[in-house]
Design a protein around this nucleic acid. Structure first.
Lengths: 360, 360
DNA sequence: GTGAAAGCGCTAACAT
DNA sequence: ATGTTAGCGCTTTCAC
């Protein structure tokens, strides 16, 4: 591996000059620059990452800690998000460090460890809780992070989230329009922020439409297709079973559809089912699932943008910032996104889209 | 952040001594050791990872490059494997760097980049191809790697694989025992090593049992539940449709089951379907899926063991190795695994287990 | 426009 | 048993 020193010897300049030439500093003569550049190319020079990181006190690495109970994730969601994060990070020369936690306590200790060992510059969080231990820790430590989802105990932290309240407005209105009055829902635990928001929204908008939702129609705490099947089966055995089931992710909805089929109901006619996420399989399910689309990969990328912006911001306080650098990091929202943002574009709420298919 | 220097000043020793005390070298007085240790504890000393890595010329990081077309993965497989890798790596103080590739060419260039920038000490590969461009590159570069799966163009590389040949023997025998003579199969592209091996095995064992398998019964090149549905539907529309369908993963099998249901066949009686992987959902599908179990998480861990062993081996050539270190790294195979291994335990073949459930 | 020198925090060879 | 010295490869004052 060629080093700056090797190049310096070859072109008869000092290491310093070579370093600056390569970095494109303005106080290096054009001639020197071209000499150095071509030498570097020929020698296949690649800067030593470790040395640069040590010197710059920057790991150029983003941390992503995955809770092992990934049952919580619909798996497709997880890979999509990961792809979005990884690619955007790579665009900025950042690496992605992934750690998988054994359990809840382990998770927090992993964050502690990664921080104290200085292995990452910041974290990306997803699947946020209303009271989120991770957000709390990171806020307390003053360590940079950005989230897919909101929390209640870190109100100024940067996030991207889908407007679940609005999404559920779309869904309830859609179902009420279709004439449904017995509407149930199956969702994740209410401790998860988005789940609570969605449930609240369902309740509110049903109330507005003058539709009652009895307690036994509300099933919270579930994730998987199996859960969806079981809860839906149970709902359908009630004395007055629902005619529509709102599920808080697509997997739950698949389970509910199966339960309906097993109860000999015609899905979309006798029983309506809706999902959330629009994972790839949803369009190909039978019948295809009515659901809410989320640009998960794009959101992953956006969370990285927010995080890197935050990191730069904190650096700015400590170090002098080149103006050019400062200008580089500005949050850019894709044209195609409908979004509500705060003044600094650090807290973004996406307007979701309802995809009407065969299950309603 | 406290540094060695800080501790050294506090306890009136040199930085060297402190370093060695903390590392537990035998040539430091017990007294000094305890003084240094307690000072370090009090000051909350954590070694600077970057500095240590630069000095040791080791990144303590494993690379895992995920092809973006993760449609290829059954998603559950992917997270399980990741969990196994990450946890085992953590046991040895190694980090996991994950990169997601846009496409096939991008993938190779990511490997090149990570190598030349010195960001990882070795790679973990999965979903291997018969002629695997990654394995080829890494072998050529002499860069450490270990695989879940075999390849044909890197015969001495360390791997763990499930014995797919044996697995298919179990499945075909099971089906033939049940009286099936019209047996079809749906698998991934034959360019994928495990897929080719499984297909070969199916053909051989059917031949042995005196069962014909016509060309139109063989559908290779598929991954998803949707694929499974489409191919199975097509098979069932043939003049002489199969009475059993062997699928090379569980997702395909789910699709095939659905196709059978839609054709009003009783699954397990009129039509038998088998899967592969035993992902969590398989036990809860309706009917529950007959399939082959793979301890995916355990395999992920084992691949890490193989890789770290390989890395140490290569280091041993360059650097002097502490004996204790050398002793530490020996491949240990879990008691519960039935396994065929080479002399050095660097190439492992797991004996799979057939899980008979409701679909046969 | 260029170079010398210092230092990020750590470890190891080599004294003593 | 401990300290001195050197250096990993890079970036950044600061002086000329």
């Amino acid at each position: 591996m060629a080093t700056l020193k090797d190049i310096a010897q070859r072109v008869n300049r000092s290491v310093t000059t070579v370093s600056r030439a390569l970095a494109g500093y303005s106080d290096v003569s054009p001639e020197t620059i071209s000499i150095v550049r071509s030498a570097a190319d020929e020698m296949g020079y690649v800067p030593n990452t470790l040395a640069r990181r040590l010197r710059n006190r920057s790991t150029e690495t983003i941390g992503f800690v995955v809770p092992d109970s990934s049952g919580g994730y619909s798996e497709a969601f997880f890979s999509e998000f990961l792809a979005g994060v990884s690619k955007r990070a790579a665009d900025f020369g950042y690496d992605l460090l992934v750690a998988v936690a054994h359990d809840k306590e382990d998770e927090i200790s992993i964050y502690r460890k990664l921080i104290s060992e200085g292995k990452v510059d910041g974290f990306v969080l997803t699947r946020t809780y209303c009271r989120d231990a991770r957000a709390e820790l990171l806020t307390k430590e003053g360590f940079p992070f950005a989230m897919f989802g909101r929390v209640e105990n870190a109100s100024s932290a940067p996030y991207v989230d889908e407007d679940g309240t609005y999404a559920m407005k779309l869904i309830t209105e859609h179902l009420v329009d279709r004439g449904h009055t017995r509407i149930a829902c199956i969702g994740q635990p209410e401790s998860i922020m988005f789940s609570r928001l969605r449930l609240q929204s369902v309740k509110e908008h049903l109330a507005t439409a003058g539709v009652q939702i009895p307690e036994e129609y509300i099933r919270m705490g579930y994730f998987s297709q199996k859960d969806g099947y079981e809860q839906a089966s149970d709902l359908l055995r009630l004395p007055t079973p629902p005619s529509a089931i709102i599920c808080f992710n697509d997997l739950l909805a698949f389970g509910a559809v199966n339960a309906g089929k097993d109860a000999d109901l015609r899905i979309g006619r006798d029983l309506a089912v809706t999902g959330f996420d629009d994972i790839p399989m949803s369009a190909h399910y039978r019948p295809p699932l009515t659901t809410i689309s989320q640009p998960i990969q794009g959101i992953g990328g956006m969370v990285v943008d927010l995080l890197l912006d935050r990191i730069q911001e904190l650096r700015g306080i400590t170090f002098q910032e080149h103006e050019s650098e400062a200008a580089k990091r500005r949050i850019l929202i894709p044209e195609s996104w409908k979004v509500e943002a705060d003044r600094h574009h650090h807290q973004l709420l996406l307007k979701p889209e309802l995809i009407i298919r065969g299950t309603t």
